[in-house]
Design a protein around this nucleic acid. Sequence first.
DNA 1: GGAATCTTCCCCCAAACGGTTGAGGCGCGA
DNA 2: TCGCGCCTCAACCGTTTGGGGGAAGATTCC
Lengths: 225, 225
Amino acid sequence: MSIRVAIVDDQALVRGGFATMLGLQDDIEVVAEAGDGAAAVEIARAHRPDVILMDIRMPEMDGLAATQAIVEIADWPVKVLILTTFDPDEYVYNALRAGASGFVLKDISPEDLVSAVRTVADGGALLAPSVTRRLIGRFAAPPSLDSLVVSRLDRLTSREREVLVAVAAGSSNNEIAEDLFVGAATVKSHVSSVLTKLGLTNRAQAVAFAYESGLVKPGDSDIGF
Amino acid sequence: MSIRVAIVDDQALVRGGFATMLGLQDDIEVVAEAGDGAAAVEIARAHRPDVILMDIRMPEMDGLAATQAIVEIADWPVKVLILTTFDPDEYVYNALRAGASGFVLKDISPEDLVSAVRTVADGGALLAPSVTRRLIGRFAAPPSLDSLVVSRLDRLTSREREVLVAVAAGSSNNEIAEDLFVGAATVKSHVSSVLTKLGLTNRAQAVAFAYESGLVKPGDSDIGF
DNA sequence: GGAATCTTCCCCCAAACGGTTGAGGCGCGA
DNA sequence: TCGCGCCTCAACCGTTTGGGGGAAGATTCC
């Protein structure tokens, strides 16, 4: 079962080059091509390819919008591999948010491109090294705004940190008391300690501190909202 | 100028395999090996390699701690490439936070490993496809828990959103009143509206909501903490 | 055997918060 | 022109919070 690929790029020459290159592989079959985003959505719907090589800069509808549209309408496991010349941050982040499985630059070697297609078809994701680097940077940065914050978190006892996460979840003192199986007075004294030790004045600041410090992160909230 | 590589793994056989494999490359030179984390820090200091292949599971000091230690003491541009058999989330995230430039699995092909070494030596970063996928997932998720949340934010008037960010910064009603040049009663009524419209019960939840929804993000806090 | 720390709880009290109702002014679209 | 929603306030009231003490039991460390 070969990998069925669609190629989307506004330059016919580029499409042809990729198509030829990929077509030489035994396990890859180029089933469709499109020259703009709107056409991309059409051929995606019509041919249901496994992988779509998508340029970003295109007339009509750009690659990001097309990616989002395709991912939304897709009722089959399609993977979009963004293939572009530039890699500014906005492109990358928007592409990943739109649902792309990969982001590689056009200066990639033919072998690597083929391997990238196989990787995303296989359910993996793949980014250009420079992109990966920045993504890691963004990911690794938040959790600690440099020991300035973390050192203050360290001053808290484990119980106090526990209370702080509960506070950060928006619980009242009474709710926290029930959750932790202690009296309300206990929670009050813990909260007081937390505020004092962290140099804060109210629990709203405590919530903000919990997020800013990385003690709790957006997404791992217990509250559903 | 060849790439100077150090290999850290507690199994001598594995070290030998990698060393031989990498040594065959014209542009790669294996300059040191270590069998545990503590030794890794030593050889890093002594040999100042460009790239360190680092296993995670090791006696004495694990690869994550060693990575962190090396990155901290390093006064030369060293890149740590984590090379492990497993890829649970904790490993990955801790590794990236510790300062690793890459995270690949031991089932990687020899050619890909060599290419990975070259990539990180060149300043890029590289992750195993499965790892990249999860990282993208975590990255793409936060910005908006998809319309469920954003739609509720839309219900707020612009003034109410303005008040909400102030609340999220930990300001009291009086402080917000001063900042926005309105009366305290006005702020109260705005806060009330916000809580009602968002279905929240107290301002701590409002702060959490602001972060969870992406209205405010860790880092763009006005408060220095 | 202390000393220190953490956890658990109590009291009191002033301040802040959250909810409600109501009201005046303003702009915008029907 | 007449609503309608938004922003602006006000007063009232009950609840929650935050800060000030203090104290008992458990643990760890010296």
